[in-house]
Design a protein around this nucleic acid. Structure first.
Lengths: 185, 185
DNA sequence: AGCGCCAGCTAATGGTCATAGCTTTCTAGC
DNA sequence: GCTAGAAAGCTATGACCATTAGCTGGCGCT
């Protein structure tokens, strides 16, 4: 009986594959085990159970997104940085709609996600740095940015826009609306 | 064996109660049957199964929201109507966070929800009537409004705002940002 | 070379959805 | 009132999933 050479990371990788291909409901320990060529209980050597697996998948998604955002913001300033961040946000969800819908929305309330959550918050604050927002105003602005981006992107990922008008145009309008709401410009 | 006097409507009522009290994952046929004082298979006399139940619950939520929106918009015009609509949107989700998170996001793609979905769209268009938007511009504007409201509200319902700043203030800012993006004013 | 750890196995339990087929209650029509 | 039949409920059964317990054998380390 040759070993499969699994690990927590490998299990999460397989979970993401199943998630992308068959949707959130198909992410079952049995399905992952099948794809790993292993019996379902064997997965318990690597993850504590379904709940922990879900948490790990959520953390991975949050990390992937944060990395992309950091890359998009790097080297840009002001409206450019904000627009690039918002486009990167949408691009992730278009590439991986099912992952986006599995994104944990309250990272700061989960000890296991707090670190990544704060890092993502920092990236967004970096994108807004040119606007020199003070503490509380910065928080409200970040929340507005997140609301606008998450709102459009989650609706798009869920197939929530039924009419044929261009989604690119709608999103560019949202970017414009948000950027224009910022100080100065 | 006295009859429980169930009906599809009553089953959906019970499902909403369970949803509100114990969250989406707790909405199981067994739980609903228990609350009705009935064995689980008996529910199949009233709903075709778990999927249809979910669809009926989604339709009910969509209807409830649409009714409230219609009431909020009635008798108002322009920015007032838009702001009232957006506040009614958030109020529903604050009163019933679990219901909001179970809201079907793509009603226009589901034959059973198309009618309510269109009615909700009409209500939003009514709120925007003062701005005299032409066909395609109206669609983009409705999408932006929906994105902004859904984004904030779904994050709030999911506990997604970890920091202590006032959520009322953040939402009022979003309303202002959106209203200012409309023509004229 | 061999020893021990640990990955992976089988077997078994309990929960959920779903279906089949039987029994009881209510009600409409006489 | 009485009686059929439709409607509402039941028990029993089976599939699938997560999880636990206890066993076995491959692989790394000395």
């Amino acid at each position: 009986m040759p070993r499969a050479g699994l690990s927590a990371t490998a299990v999460v990788d397989l979970a993401l594959t199943v998630l992308d291909e068959h949707g959130a409901d198909a992410v079952t320990l049995t399905a992952i085990a099948g794809r790993a060529g292993v019996a379902a209980p064997s997965l318990y050597r690597h993850v504590a159970g379904r709940d922990e697996l879900r948490a790990l998948v959520g953390a991975r998604i949050l990390e992937e997104m944060t990395d992309r955002f950091a890359g998009a913001v790097m080297g840009r300033h002001g409206a450019d940085a904000v627009a690039a961040l918002m486009r990167a946000y949408r691009d992730y969800a278009r590439q991986y709609p099912a992952r986006y819908l599995a994104l944990p929305l309250d990272p700061l309330h989960d000890p296991a996600l707090q670190a990544v959550g704060r890092r993502q918050l920092d990236v967004v604050l970096t994108a807004l740095r040119a606007y020199e927002l003070s503490g509380s105003a910065a928080i409200h602005t970040v929340r507005c940015l997140r609301s606008v981006a998450h709102g459009f992107v989650s609706l798009e990922a869920a197939g929530g826009f039924g009419l044929p008008e261009s989604l690119d145009e709608t999103y560019e309008r949202l970017i414009t609306i948000f950027v224009r709401s910022l100080p100065h410009s």
